[in-house]
Amino acid sequence: MELHLYEQIYLYIIQEIKEGRLKAGDRLSSEKELAEQFGVSRITSKKALEKLADSGVIIRIQGKGSFVADHLTAGQGPKSITPPLVADDEKRLLGFITPNFSDEFGLKLLRSMEKQSAEHHYQLIIKRTFGDREEEIRAIQLFISLGVKGLLMTPIHGEHYNSELLRLVFDQFPIVLVDRYLKGIPVCSVYTDNKKASMDLTLHLIHKGHKKIAFLSPPEENTSTLEERLLGYTLAFTQEGMKLNKDYLITNLRGTLPENMDGEAKEKDKETLRVFLEQHPNVKAFVVSEFLIATMLANVIHSMGKSLEEFEIVCFDSMDDYLGQTPFTHIEQDEKQMGEAAVNMLVSQILGTSVPERTIVDHRMIVKK
């Protein structure tokens, strides 16, 4: 069986001790020095040193470095690396932190990640934060305390990044963001090309003859998914040489956010949509960033005594009706591939292999019959 990179470093140091080149009390090379010597990441060299410490081969002293344990002399290194590897296998955990998941998006993704984790012989544990920043911080701290080897994460909506998440990124802890990325932060991310997908939806309406097209969304608030969808909508108008009416942008809908899924927030959103429809009776086409907002819009239209046949609504994600038909033309994200790619890249990081910073998963547009 081929050895992992950290195992090779582990064995190298064991051999150095056995052959007397490293003696009791000698200081080992630092994580950075070992990473440069073996051409690996600091995550890999750090893991090798951690395994040596777990085996009692070395002693790690914060701020000073790693030293060969006093009880070891030439020819008395550990007989094998089996003990640390067995201990490692006993706690093969990956964590997934997400605001929420539902049938229209997230459930297939979760199933895919669970299956792919099992393929790599890891157990996936899950924590929902329901859009609460403090709960997200506590979830990260909990998973780290449980000894997860890496984190899959969909950060919550918000104007500021989670400080605990940033600390993990800068410490080079294995982490993959799913369904979004952090601008300016070098962290592995897997997501749909939301800009292209939103352009596809908007161009679909334009090519059907619509010129007055509204855009509905929760606040972008530094959330890459929503920012890209708004950008794609605006770029479609630019591409077609059409003027964009900013009065048609409604980006303050909060009733579908995990932290606001109560009656009051939804009723406020419905009133916002009702007022818009009354003030802009000639707007008959809508690009909607989320399926739940699309269904809310349809309900408002119906409650106002208007016929849904007069309107065309396109959105991201969907659920079929009781006849197995989709109610809206929509973007279908490949949740299965997204989940598989995210887990594969997380495991690669754990094993010390470099991964691309961003991976875009293909989507397709499903046109309502």
Rank of each mutant, 00 (worst) to 15 (best):
19 E>A: 05
153 M>Q: 08
190 V>D: 08
215 F>P: 08
42 R>H: 12
227 E>Y: 10
358 R>Q: 15
185 I>Q: 00
158 G>M: 08
86 V>G: 00
183 K>N: 10
80 S>T: 15
215 F>Y: 14
318 S>F: 01
270 K>D: 05
257 L>G: 04
178 V>D: 00
281 P>R: 09
304 M>N: 07
107 L>Y: 06
191 Y>V: 03
97 I>Y: 07
224 S>V: 13
32 K>A: 12
154 T>V: 06
267 E>F: 02
30 S>T: 15
84 P>T: 01
39 G>R: 09
281 P>K: 09
363 H>T: 08
123 Q>V: 11
285 A>E: 05
116 Q>D: 06
254 R>E: 12
238 T>P: 01
190 V>M: 05
266 K>G: 00
204 H>A: 12
67 F>Y: 15
21 R>W: 00
209 G>R: 06
352 G>S: 06
354 S>T: 06
132 D>K: 12
120 H>M: 02
105 F>Y: 15
283 V>M: 09
65 G>S: 06
97 I>R: 13
35 A>P: 02
98 T>W: 01
66 S>G: 01
244 L>G: 04
87 A>W: 08
121 H>F: 08
43 I>N: 08
76 Q>G: 11
361 V>D: 00
10 Y>L: 13
309 E>L: 03
29 S>H: 04
352 G>R: 04
309 E>N: 10
310 E>W: 07
118 A>T: 14
282 N>Q: 11
168 L>D: 05
157 H>K: 10
147 G>D: 07
289 S>Q: 02
244 L>Q: 12
188 C>L: 06
6 Y>D: 04
189 S>P: 00
226 L>D: 02
83 P>E: 12
93 L>K: 07
308 L>W: 09
140 I>Q: 10
38 F>L: 11
352 G>A: 03
353 T>K: 05
123 Q>I: 13
328 F>L: 03
262 D>T: 03
204 H>F: 15
255 G>M: 04
4 H>I: 06
83 P>L: 04
37 Q>S: 01
38 F>E: 14
43 I>E: 10
292 L>G: 00
348 S>R: 11
360 I>P: 09
236 A>R: 02
326 T>Y: 10
318 S>E: 06
294 A>S: 05
279 Q>S: 12
121 H>D: 15
308 L>S: 13
137 I>W: 00
111 R>H: 03
346 L>A: 14
308 L>K: 11
222 N>S: 08
333 Q>E: 13
95 G>R: 05
166 L>A: 07
71 H>Q: 04
114 E>L: 01
272 T>R: 11
195 K>G: 00
301 I>K: 14
144 I>N: 10
30 S>P: 02
237 F>V: 09
160 H>K: 15
128 R>Q: 15
3 L>R: 15
188 C>D: 06
331 I>M: 07
272 T>S: 14
173 F>M: 03
146 L>G: 02
244 L>D: 13
215 F>H: 13
337 Q>A: 11
236 A>S: 10
366 I>Y: 03
7 E>D: 14
369 K>S: 04
239 Q>V: 11
289 S>I: 00
188 C>H: 12
231 L>M: 12
60 R>V: 14
342 A>W: 10
72 L>D: 02
40 V>H: 11
251 T>C: 12
73 T>F: 13
73 T>A: 14
40 V>N: 09
173 F>R: 02
290 E>V: 11
